[in-house]
């Protein structure tokens, strides 16, 4: 197992290198590259030249890349164009807000999706199954940002039950209830799509397991229905779900950008959006490379958990 993990981690290194080269190249190729962005058109020729040299933008792209890579492996992502703070500090400042929002959303999504998926599978073709199927189709088909808009419209603007944006009330004392109050709508938005797709996955894998012979055997020898569903069926149906959840965790930054921007949540997604608007290249590069690392790591974790849950799988 250890050998397997080490091998997978070593294999991830060239993959991440290729990704970083492609990302770096893309940012270079795109018109209005870094050199033009950090500069104000009203600067004098000398000031402009000094700035280009200071940012290292006068050097050829491969050298810039190697410098960037050297910094990155030492966890130095450079300084932001905006105010010259280290990118890593900026990311560290925003991380707690994002972890809070995403962690809670994943928890809520799992707590809802698991029972819903099991119920839909156990009561297959019942009215409950039918309603859940239609609802999950709607959940999957709905544009996330539109759902967020509608929630804000109804629950924040029309009824005023929840704040429209932010992480806590401006200027007010920070309290647990105030934070919780601000979390409700963004968490619902982020969790809904996951609930819809995960419960579908769990339903179909439960159905597959429920038709297996060993479950018939368990029933025949008189094991309680609830025990069959939870201990015998669910444990096996969980295996495919784990992969899907791990992959979704890896790709979560995309969803975070959308939700955090709409709810003005001061997290990493918002940081990315702002960096994009102001073309803050060091921030963009760091965020994309970190997301790629997250995705690759989550893939590896998914495979490891898969092996733990399913003893038939042997890693050699």
């Amino acid at each position: 197992m250890t050998t397997y993990i080490v091998r997978r981690l070593l294999q991830a290194i060239p993959l991440l290198l290729v990704i970083s080269i492609v990302l770096f190249g893309l940012l270079q190729l795109i018109p209005g590259g870094p050199a033009q962005v950090a500069l104000s058109p009203r600067m004098s020729e000398q000031a402009r030249h000094d700035m280009v040299v200071a940012l290292g933008l006068d050097q050829p792209a491969p050298i810039q890349y190697v410098k960037w890579l050297w910094g990155t492996v030492h966890l130095d992502f450079g300084n932001t164009f905006k105010d010259g703070r280290p990118v890593l500090t900026e990311i560290g400042d925003r991380l707690p807000a994002t972890v809070e929002l995403l962690g809670l959303s994943f928890l809520v999504a799992l707590l809802c999706a698991i029972p819903l998926g099991i119920i839909a599978a156990v009561k297959q073709y019942s009215i409950v199954d039918y309603v859940l199927t239609v609802l999950s189709y709607i959940g999957i088909s709905m544009p996330v940002f539109w759902f967020a808009e509608m929630l804000i419209l109804v629950f924040a603007i029309q009824h005023g039950w929840f704040p429209t944006s932010g992480r806590q009330t401006e200027g007010g004392p920070s309290s647990f209830w105030d934070s919780a109050h601000h979390l409700v709508l963004p968490v619902i938005v982020l969790a809904l799509a996951f609930i819809a797709s995960w419960s579908r996955y769990l339903r179909s894998s439960m159905l597959e397991v429920l038709h297996q012979d060993y479950l018939r055997t368990a029933r025949a020898k008189g094991v309680q229905r609830l025990k069959i569903i939870v201990k015998h069926a669910f444990r096996n149906a969980l295996i495919p779900l784990v992969t899907v959840v791990a992959l979704d965790v890896g790709g979560i930054f995309g969803g975070a950008v959308i939700t955090e921007t709409i709810f003005a949540w001061p997290g990493l997604g918002r940081l990315f959006y702002d960096a994009l608007s102001s073309r803050d290249y060091p921030v963009l590069m760091a965020m994309m490379e970190l997301s790629a690392v997250t995705i690759v790591l989550c893939n590896i974790i998914a495979d490891i958990i898969y092996g733990i849950l399913d003893p038939r799988i042997r890693y050699s």
Binding site: L15, L16, I19, V22, L23, L26, L27, I30, P31, G32, G251, F253, G254, G255, V257, I258, F272, Y273, L276, S277, R279, L284, M287, M288, S291, A292, T294, I295, V296, N299
Partner: peptide, 15 residues
Amino acid sequence: LSFPLYLLLFVLSAF
């Protein structure tokens, strides 16, 4: 598949 696709999508289209 290992690219942060949404981020890439945003970056490409921003330009």
